[in-house]
Design a binder for these strands. Structure first.
Lengths: 208, 208
DNA sequence: CGCGATCATCGATCACTGATCACTTATCAC
DNA sequence: GTGATAAGTGATCAGTGATCGATGATCGCG
């Protein structure tokens, strides 16, 4: 017995980490559908099948639920980028990574909303949760690294990979967030729009 | 006396339309500082110097206050674009318009938030407030028109001005919304970032 | 088996939110 | 004066996020 007096893991009905996951799943669905401020903790609790105070046994606040979803979304994105991103030989390789980004956002609009289209909070006071900041920077770091790598291989290209990466990231985020937020807008052919947008931004990594 | 039985305009202390403007001014300042959901109607009322129910004599709801600010902001944007946008001879003229767009967003972050980065609502059910939608589309229409005009003058450029305008708009929106939503991010020099971003997107209006 | 200890859970409740209503107050025309 | 009318308010409502003490259920241990 390596641990002298370990606490005993209760089994109960659906207690433990599973409850936590249930709560997160319900919250993700509800937040994505009705928005963070359009969903009450009581609604989340009801969707899970527990009472409202129970949520506070797993999370310190409603905001912490949203933050956890936020962090997970970034981790998921980071994983996809790490898997799909090669060492960039040409802008086309960058385009592949950008496409991964778009697909992730459109496939997980709920998570993307919670992650990027947040309201207020971040404004001034809140220094932004460390994990949130870290997971976000990690995903962004992959993109930045790709662009820096590409520019290094082609010294005739532009400089300042940091600023360029931020520009390209912003360009991607704009398209994804608008496609999600305004499905009723008379967009031109979606696939063509995305494809051209991605290629344009990827080409920017070398132009000038 | 053209009007048979007109209602008598009360003077009182600060009644009438002026009160309405005071409320809007206070709400704009508070919303911008603490966010829409970080400000209560009681705080707004206190800032104006009236009781909370008084607000409901001028506005049907807190949301209506935000909507009014939203519509006004977009009218302002539309006006700025109309004033500052010339018939585009070159991408530089488009860049000027884009720069107006960015400056507007950064100067009116809360209005911009309510306009584009809203939560839920637009999702499915709500058909989006007519005035809001109209003012938004009007501003976008100016940009689209500029790009179509530029392409028409230089037939060697690309086609599909609609799709291109959407791409450029998305690119602008992405930068503005991220700069607003994530002030804590280690952005490179802001002015340089914006300037290059704008020029890049403007150049896209003719490339290929 | 029984008996604390422990932990998940819940009803009750708090301060606060947006919104409503009956009531008072102040100003007007006459 | 007097009534009419609009402006403004205190009291209050249902619903919110969050807290707390009590209730069980489950465990290791005798």
């Amino acid at each position: 017995m390596p641990e002298p007096s370990r606490r005993s893991p209760r089994k109960a009905k659906g207690a433990g980490p599973e409850r936590r996951e249930e709560i997160l799943a319900a919250a993700l669905r509800l937040f994505g559908q009705y928005g963070l401020y359009g969903v009450s903790t009581r609604q989340i609790a009801q969707a899970v099948g527990v009472s409202q105070p129970t949520l506070y046994a797993y999370f310190a606040s409603k905001d912490e639920i949203a933050t956890e979803l936020h962090v997970r979304a970034f981790r998921e994105l980071e994983g996809r980028l790490r898997t799909g991103a090669r060492d960039p030989e040409s802008p086309d390789d960058v385009a592949v990574a950008l496409r991964i980004y778009v697909d992730f956002g459109l496939e997980n609009p709920d998570a993307y909303r919670v992650a990027f289209m947040f309201e207020g909070q971040h404004g001034q006071d809140m220094p932004e949760h460390p994990d949130v900041s870290a997971s976000g920077h990690a995903a962004f770091g992959i993109l930045r690294h790709m662009i820096a790598e590409l520019q290094a291989r082609h010294p005739d290209g532009g400089r300042d990979p940091d600023g360029l990466a931020q520009s390209i990231w912003a360009g991607m985020h704009g398209l994804v967030s608008l496609l999600i937020a305004r499905p009723g807008f008379p967009w031109t052919d979606r696939e063509q729009l995305i494809d051209r947008h991605v290629r344009m931004l990827a080409d920017m990594a070398m132009a000038r």
